[in-house]
């Protein structure tokens, strides 16, 4: 069975740390960083990157449109 792996890129300096992406993620990939960005927000990051399936749910609900989503299909025995 082909398995998928995904990854997201958060534009850290534009992230306002609202956390809506983390709630929308079906795989509990996203957490808010303990560190803050230049504006003082705890930005979103992939705390659990192996679990990402590239579904884009996080990006769809992001009010600031700062998440890009990547996805690859893995071969059965990869």
């Amino acid at each position: 069975m082909a398995k998928v792996r995904g990854a997201i890129v958060v534009d850290v300096e534009k992230c306002k740390g609202c956390g809506l992406c983390a709630v929308a993620c079906p795989s509990s990939v996203i957490a808010l960083a303990k560190e803050v960005n230049g504006k003082g927000y705890n930005y979103a990051y992939m705390a659990n990157p192996e679990a990402c399936i590239g579904c884009a749910n996080c990006a769809m609900v992001c009010p600031d449109s700062i998440i890009s989503v990547y996805k690859v299909k893995l071969e059965a025995n990869a």
Binding site: G6, V9, K16, D64, S68, Y70
Partner: peptide, 28 residues
């Protein structure tokens, strides 16, 4: 992760109709 994050694997990104300006709206 760096092998996944490649141009050819991009499935979702900001619409080109949105500008690059940071929105003044409150978080969320």
């Amino acid at each position: 992760v760096k092998d996944i994050i490649k141009e050819e694997n991009l499935v979702y990104s900001k619409s080109k109709v949105l500008t690059d300006n940071i929105m003044h709206y409150c978080p969320g």
